[in-house]
Amino acid sequence: MEEFILRVENVSYAYEEGAGMAVQDMNLAFRPGEMTAVLGHNGSGKSTLAKLLNGLYTPTVGKVTVCGMDTALDEHTWQIRQSAGLVFQNPDNQLVASIVRDDVAFGLENIGVPSAEMPGRIEDALRDVGMLDFIDRAPHMLSGGQKQRIAIAGILAMRPRALILDEATAMLDPKGRREVFSVVERLNREQGITVVWITHFMEEAARCRRVIVMDQGKCVMDGTPAEVFTQAERLRAMRLDVPPMVALGDLLRARGLRIPREAMDIESMAREVLACR
């Protein structure tokens, strides 16, 4: 197995010649099975990075590889799109068919999967996102969270190695957000799919194993949630924040309670507070 699924080497990207760099001198690598959150304020370059990671954009300078394939080479385009799927923010912008089944089939048709193999792959993918019961439904009648799960199924059917989600929960209500996040978390855990999770929700980032922070097109922090979220002031200076439980932990520590900095979600905070004397 290769060492990295997605690799970004000395990459800069400008939308137009002479325009500022949306991504600047970036070096990043994602190992198989990693689940990484990418944080950054609006305009920090997160979406540009997402589109570089599956070859929708090719670098102005530097090189991006997906499973070792250079995204700048045309001969790899289809295999790259199949290996690294991208889910966007607006669920209404990424569904193409009038029946869920056909929507999931769309990608398979494009990559030339034999028709005998398609029903099985479609059903597997829909089962994986908990939407098999909706196979004959019309996508536009579904909730936002359900639509996003259909979009994910469309990618899963192609058996990707990596999923890149660009604020896939930003337009969803709390229930939809929970649905989509837990589906992706499970795919990562059970199928080892590499996940790049771009988000503005700090509590989601706290649940990933690795957190990257972008600012002005650069990667400025890269570490575990505990390493990143202990730097509250630095995050706030970049228009970001810490998860609510981290903020509470800081208050409790200031009052002398011994709460470890690793307690960043409700479960672990409850455990620590109850154990604390």
């Binding site: 209500d173 709390p174 609510p244 509470l248 409700i266 409850a270 507070v273 109850l274």
Partner: peptide, 20 residues
Amino acid sequence: MGLDVPQTVQLCRRLRAGGM
């Protein structure tokens, strides 16, 4: 109803369930 409650409220309930 599929709604959230603030995280502090969720923690508060969890702590009460734990005997606080």
